[in-house]
């Protein structure tokens, strides 16, 4: 059986005719298998949704109770028979509940990774390597310039800044789902035990993380805190809030942004942040290439990101590789992550 007969790349996402489902479709479909709850992968309006319990819960938190016709929770490692295909979900290490989806039919196994990272993260289950024939990998940071380094080193940078500017507030822009909670966990791991303040938009999701036994220490809502109280504190907020009128409640804020994009100076300057923190929930170049090699897959499909570089790398390592043209995947927080063309070069 050809891999394309099992999973067919279409403009709205990967389609499995055999099993009658799409994976992370970007438009409403009858039955969707969702890798994780970030809004570019998990959209509302599907007939039936199959995902991990956490992904379903997070989708419900974001979209409300009627985000899909019906839902079905699946455990990591559980075998599901859908049409003529066997489907299993495996931890992707990206955010809470995130999964790679393995589809097997006619002796051929394809793994659609969704977004993944193969480094430690105290806020989600670790990435599980699944051996397969075809590996569908993301390529968000698929250039050799992206090596994310030790996130604790980045947290040390933040804490040093708090020490140098104790009368200022530090605002850390971070995606509301996953990144924010990871940053808080890293702060706690670094011995920072003061209360961490939260922008209203991330309270629900963060509380959900806590309800899953992820200890995040004392958290406080920004709303209600006086300006004086916020001096010397750290606040997590969505990246788009960093340039919002909302920031005016803080005393002389230092703006930070936790993202893999912060590795590139021109990008960091585009956002106008003072403290770029290279903390990513995606695999870096070394992580992508090591994972591809370790899956044992002879064929690699590359999607959303820097496809060219990764396809080139695969080819030079004697792996069959092709880019997938699926539109609609990007970053979680569209407003902050994809600056309009006019923005480029507009700032020095």
């Amino acid at each position: 059986m050809r891999p394309e007969d099992i999973l067919m790349p279409t403009p709205v996402g990967l389609c499995c005719k055999l099993g009658g489902f799409h994976i992370d479709p970007t438009r409403p479909v009858g039955r969707a298998l969702i890798t994780h709850a970030h809004s570019d992968h998990a959209r509302a309006g599907h007939g039936a949704v199959l995902a991990t319990q956490q992904t379903l819960d997070l989708m419900r938190l974001r979209y409300g109770d009627s985000f899909a016709g019906t839902t079905q929770a699946v455990n990591y490692g559980e075998n599901l028979e859908l049409g003529g295909a066997i489907v299993t979900f495996h931890p992707a290490g990206h955010v809470l509940g995130s999964a790679q989806i393995a589809v097997k039919a006619g002796g051929v196994r394809i793994v659609a990774s969704g977004d993944y990272k193969n480094v430690a993260d105290p806020t989600c289950a670790p990435f599980e390597l699944v051996r397969c024939d075809v590996f569908i990998t993301e390529a968000t940071f698929a250039l050799p310039v992206f090596r994310h380094g030790d996130p604790l080193g980045e947290i040390a940078k933040l804490l040093h800044s708090v020490a140098v500017f104790p009368e200022r507030a530090h605002l850390v822009g971070a995606y509301s789902l996953g990144k924010a909670q990871r940053v808080i966990a890293l702060l706690r791991q670094s011995g920072y035990h003061a209360p961490v303040y939260l922008h209203g938009a991330m309270e629900n999701i963060t509380r959900y993380y806590e309800s899953h036994g992820i200890a995040l220490g004392e958290l406080r809502a920004v709303s209600g805190a006086s300006k004086a109280e916020l001096a010397g504190t750290i606040t997590l907020c969505p990246p788009s809030a960093l340039t919002d009128i909302w920031t005016r409640r803080f005393p002389d804020p230092v703006t930070a942004f936790a993202s893999g994009w912060m590795r590139i100076r021109a990008r960091a300057r585009q956002y106008g942040v003072q403290l770029p923190l290279v903390i990513s929930d995606h695999a870096d170049w070394d992580g992508l290439t090591a994972t591809i090699a370790a899956t044992g897959a002879g064929e690699i499909w590359v999607t959303h990101g820097q496809e060219d570089a990764l396809v080139h790398w695969c080819t030079t390592h004697r792996l069959k590789a092709r880019p997938l043209d699926i539109v609609g995947y990007g970053e979680e927080d569209e407003d902050a992550a994809t600056p309009a063309p006019a923005e480029r070069g507009a700032e020095p």
């Binding site: 250039l143 050799p144 310039v145 992206f146 590795r263 590139i264 100076r265 820097q306 790398w313 030079t316």
Partner: peptide, 23 residues
């Protein structure tokens, strides 16, 4: 480095020193 990966990287980063430092 691989010349193709260098070219893609340089194009993305836009600054020679920075590209070299990163890759």
């Amino acid at each position: 480095s691989d010349p193709v990966l260098f070219a893609l990287s340089y194009d993305f980063v836009g600054d020679l020193s920075e590209t070299v430092a990163l890759m």
